[in-house]
């Protein structure tokens, strides 16, 4: 929080300079900005727009189209639970309900203590070891609600 907007812009501009020669650089830039800050800061949109000779609205349009890009920082832990059919067939709905109840959040929300963000995901490609989840970037198969909660210490 101590970082000034100006510092932020310098970092975003550096990312743009590094990737601008790619064919179709906007998605790689947005991914890199999110990697750097944990989300896409509002001010970054203008900096990216300027660098790529686009309007801020265009960049916002792209960033907001994709489920991956966040407008605010996620909680300390990110739980992604697969809600697609193969996992449904193995009880993913009940699993999701239990985790939501326990954390007292709905899908795409963060707990009040900012400890856990819960997100739905539609398929992790782990359909033969369902139900599946991804916790802080690590995949888990044949998972239970208790195991998910244990992994984030809740």
């Amino acid at each position: 929080m101590s970082e000034t907007t100006e510092d932020q812009n310098v970092r975003v501009a550096a990312i743009c300079d590094q990737l601008i020669t790619l064919e179709g650089p906007l998605l790689p830039i947005l991914h890199e900005v999110q990697e750097e800050f944990g989300f896409i800061p509002d001010g970054a949109l203008q900096t990216i727009a300027k660098k790529l000779n686009l309007s801020r609205a265009e960049v916002h349009g792209v960033a907001s189209f994709y489920h991956d890009f966040r407008e605010e920082k996620a909680g300390k832990h990110v739980i992604k639970i697969c809600r697609a059919e193969a996992c449904q067939a193995m009880g993913a709905d009940a699993l999701g309900d239990k985790v939501r109840r326990h954390l007292n959040v709905d899908w795409s929300q963060t707990t009040a203590d900012r400890k856990v963000t819960l997100e739905p995901v539609f398929c992790l490609g782990l359909c033969a070891c369902a139900p599946a989840a991804m916790i802080d970037g690590k995949v888990v198969g044949r998972v239970s609600a208790d195991r998910i909660l244990e992994k984030v210490g809740s």
Partner: peptide, 11 residues
């Protein structure tokens, strides 16, 4: 972009 549930051949 293998997004179909039940598929993992590409992965």
């Amino acid at each position: 972009d293998e997004g179909d549930s039940g598929t993992f051949a590409d992965r």
